[in-house]
Structure formats: structure tokens, C-alpha cells
């Protein structure tokens, strides 16, 4: 079953700006899906339409089979939304925000308090439950919005740049939490500007540019399109820059080499050539910008086609 099924969605804002130009997109139940695109591409508008904050101009949206036009309340019940901007009442404490939100979904106060405790504890906010939420740090506010979105235990969680502006430690703990709830069966749609985040978390990916879906495929197949792969090697200080006819190599600092090899080539060949030139490799890692390269390529291609 599709968690969401968009057919020919268009959005024309007042003033004639065409934000979406007939987007069709399906996300399977249980998926962890990345929706990427440059600023102003139409990601937030798409999310706004799915979560019924934005009125679409044309097209059809179904959420777990519920039509947004005819079964709005059933469709809304399936979705938990974590928006890009902080949109809770900054004067209310986290516990009150969560209990109120549960109430809007028809969850009685007694049950709401139990759920609020569970999610506030899971997201490390329990100690701050009675503090005015304006006093929370940026990372805490982001986690509060995730807790709020989960209060009615939705089948689909939509996160619009959930880790924007949070430090790497908090970001990683949020990734772990999102992976956990995805494993528990919650479908997740994520927009982000951190391509490393999308690459690490998501199984499938859609790229929106200028209101059009320019790519919709699995992360694996998208990354598989890269003809080459770049590795970073930590080495003992080399006496000279090694040379090779088989692959491109450059020295980024005294003890680091960057090697770009063709997908068809074997890594063994790299090691044997470097070894033959007296270079000792201490460790190796993949350069984590593979998706970034593809993203830029796709968006640039789109720009040329317009």
C-alpha cells in the first residue's frame, strides 16, 4: 500500500507563482523517503499540501488510501508533521503542548499524559516538561516538535528539515530515534539540506526542482549511477606525490590522499600501486559527498533544460 500517492499536484499561489507543476509521486508504506531540492524548489509546498496546510490548485492526494478531498479527517489522522519552523506556543511548557495536541486527535487527557511522558523521556525532554518552551535550546525545540507529531501515533511522519541548526551530537541521536521508529513500522518522509543525512537514513529519494519531480528512485540505484567513487586515505607522510595511470590521485595535506577510482576497478590495485611506491596506508574512508555530486548534477541538468 502507498503511504502517500500524489497525482498531478499543481499549486499556483496568488500572484501567479507556480510552485508545483504537476507532481506525481508514490511513497510505499514503511519507507524512509528523502525529498530533496534546492531552496524554493517546492518541497515545503508539497508537504504543506499533504498535511492540508496548503490548498492545492489541482491534482489528487491519498494518504494510506484516504482521499484528502473526500476523507480529510481520516487522512489527517494518519499523518504526524514536524514543520521547518518552530510553530508551538512558546509560552506553554512541553507537557502542556503535547497533551493539547493529543486532545485535538481525540486522545483523552489520562492517556495523553502517559504518551507525553513516554515521548518526552525518549527524546530527553522530561526534565524540561514544565519549563516555558521558549527557554529550550534549538535542538530541544526540534525534538519537542517530533514528540508532538508522534502523540497520536501516526503511520506517516513527515519531517521538514528536522535537523536544521542542531549540533552533530543531537543530530545523530535524532537519526537513531528516527531509524528506530521507522523500524517499528512508521513511514518517514524527510526533507533536508544535509545530503549525508539523506544518504545515511533513506532508502528512496525524490528530487524536486522548480516545481517538478526530476528524480524518484532508490538511493542505491541513484548512487549506483556514479561512474566513479572517491576514497580518502590516511597515510604516512609520502616523500612524493604518487602517480598512477589507472586512477586519479591528489594530495590534500601532508598525510592525506584523495583517490578517485572507476567503479569497475578493484581497490586491490590501488593498494598495490601505492605500496609499490613506498606509501603506507593507515586507514581509509569513503568521501561522503556522493549524493551531493549527483544532486548538483541533476539540478544543473534541470536548469539547462528549462
Amino acid at each position: 500500500m502507498y503511504a502517500i500517492d500524489l497525482k498531478g499536484i499543481t499549486k499556483i499561489y496568488k500572484g501567479g507563482v507556480e510552485a508545483l507543476k504537476g507532481i506525481s509521486l508514490q511513497v510505499q508504506e514503511g519507507d524512509f523517503y528523502a525529498l530533496l531540492g534546492p531552496n524554493g524548489a517546492g518541497k515545503s509546498t508539497t508537504i504543506g499540501i499533504i498535511s492540508s496546510l496548503v490548498n492545492k490548485s489541482a491534482g489528487k492526494v491519498t494518504v494510506f488510501g484516504y482521499d484528502l478531498d473526500t476523507q480529510l479527517e481520516q487522512a489527517k489522522s494518519q499523518i504526524g508533521l514536524v514543520p521547518q519552523e518552530f510553530n508551538f506556543n512558546q509560552f506553554e511548557p512541553p507537557l502542556q503542548i503535547l497533551v493539547n495536541q493529543a486532545g485535538y486527535y481525540g486522545i483523552k487527557r489520562k492517556e495523553a499524559l502517559v504518551r507525553a511522558e513516554k515521548y518526552l523521556k525518549q527524546l530527553d525532554l522530561w526534565e524540561k516538561r514544565d519549563q516555558p518552551s521558549r527557554e529550550l535550546s534549538g535542538g530541544m525545540k526540534r525534538r519537542l516538535m517530533i514528540a508532538r507529531a508522534l502523540m497520536h501515533e501516526p503511520r506517516l511522519l513527515i519531517l521538514d528539515e528536522p535537523t536544521a541548526g542542531v549540533d552533530i551530537e543531537v543530530r545523530r541521536s535524532m537519526w537513531e530515534f528516527l531509524q528506530l521508529i521507522n523500524q517499528q513500522g512508521v513511514t518517514i518522509i524527510l526533507t533536508t539540506h544535509y545530503l549525508e543525512e539523506a544518504e545515511m537514513l533513506c532508502r528512496n529519494i525524490g528530487i524536486i526542482d522548480k516545481g517538478r519531480l526530476v528524480e524518484n528512485t532508490s538511493m542505491k540505484s541513484l548512487l549506483g549511477r556514479l561512474g566513479t567513487e572517491t576514497f580518502i586515505l590516511d597515510v604516512d607522510p609520502p616523500t612524493h606525490l604518487p602517480s598512477s595511470d589507472a586512477f586519479s590521485i591528489k594530495q590534500t595535506d601532508e598525510v592525506t590522499l584523495e583517490v578517485e577510482i572507476d567503479k569497475a576497478q578493484s581497490l586491490n590495485k590501488v593498494f598495490s600501486e601505492l605500496s609499490a611506491q613506498g606509501i603506507r596506508v593507515n586507514s581509509m574512508r569513503n568521501k561522503a559527498n556522493r549524493l551531493e555530486e549527483l544532486f548538483i548534477e541533476l539540478v544543473e541538468k534541470g536548469a539547462k533544460n528549462v
Partner: peptide, 8 residues
Amino acid sequence: EELLVAPV
């Protein structure tokens, strides 16, 4: 928006 996204 808390109210608008909810089935109210």
C-alpha cells in the same frame, strides 16, 4: 497549524 493538521 497544530489545529489545522489535526482531524478537527
